[in-house]
């Protein structure tokens, strides 16, 4: 693949901790190879800042292959930046041109407080899972794996929903900071499988209750979440979630 070297400018959100006020800081970043990933560009910048005796920029990352859900940058007004179906760590500098000014912010949502610079606290997602995002089966309780055939189509759909990496881009993309796409992905994954059936009703009720408690906003069907989702989780999951919720509230009331 051909590559070139570009010079860019960054405007990055800096914030010392949750309590303090944040601000934008500008950086010139010359000599970036288009073969680099977006985070490697940040590595290069951070190395330079440390050498100059300045504070590096804090950001979350781990796997750098689009699966752990740790990376979370809001780039030029889009969670995970310009490429569709791509996490921040998989975005490459090929996406930019010489002279570009790139604005980078953390996820913005009341339920995701900033920890430092571009890092936020997504503990709310774990607490939503604690509320019911599981199948209650203790170790050792299981029957043979092939005792329960599952239609391939159902299994495939459950898998597609289970592909969610819990990154929170859907929340960051939504003007209401709604977590519906994330919650719907988990509810769908488990509701589509026969193993998930016994707890189907409480699960959806409890997860939604927790979601509200965490301060995520309501869903107004703008579809921004689906567009931003790096795993292309379909918004049809939200329709399924609503149906699950409705039927659960009708029968458990």
């Amino acid at each position: 693949m051909e590559h070139t070297t570009i010079n860019i400018k960054l405007k990055v959100w800096k914030q010392a901790n949750t309590q303090s006020k944040g601000y934008f800081e500008s950086y010139d970043v010359p000599g970036i190879s288009t073969e680099m990933s977006f985070l490697e560009m940040f590595d290069v910048l951070n190395e330079r800042l440390i050498a100059e005796g300045k504070e590096p920029i804090a950001f979350d990352h781990d796997c750098r292959e689009g699966i752990c859900g740790m990376c979370s940058m809001y780039i030029n007004g889009k969670p995970h930046g310009p490429w569709e179906g791509t996490t921040t760590c998989q975005l490459h500098m090929r996406a930019f041109k010489d002279g570009d000014i790139i604005v980078v912010e953390p996820w913005r949502a009341a339920a995701f407080p900033v920890i430092k610079d571009l890092m936020v606290d997504r503990g709310a997602f774990d607490r939503i899972i604690q509320a019911g995002g599981y199948i209650s089966v203790n170790t050792g309780n299981a029957v043979d794996g092939n005792a329960l055939p599952i239609e391939k189509e159902k299994a495939d759909n459950a898998f597609a929903a289970a592909a969610c990496i819990g990154c929170g881009a859907c929340v960051a993309a939504c003007k209401n900071s709604s977590a519906m796409l994330f919650v719907s992905a988990k509810v769908s994954h488990l509701a589509l499988l026969p193993q998930g059936a016994p707890e189907r009703k409480q699960r959806v009720m409890n997860m939604i209750a927790q979601m509200d408690k965490e301060g995520f906003g309501a869903c107004t069907n703008t579809g921004a979440c689906e567009a931003a989702c790096p795993k292309e989780i379909s918004i049809t999951n939200i329709a399924r979630l609503n149906a699950e919720y409705l039927s659960a509230s009708l029968t458990t009331a």
């Binding site: 199948i135 299981a142 029957v143 794996g145 055939p149 599952i150 391939k152 459950a158 289970a162």
Partner: peptide, 12 residues
């Protein structure tokens, strides 16, 4: 067996 029971969506 355990993973299937937990809802791990293995290929089928």
């Amino acid at each position: 067996d355990q993973c299937v029971a937990q809802g791990v969506p293995f290929a089928r």
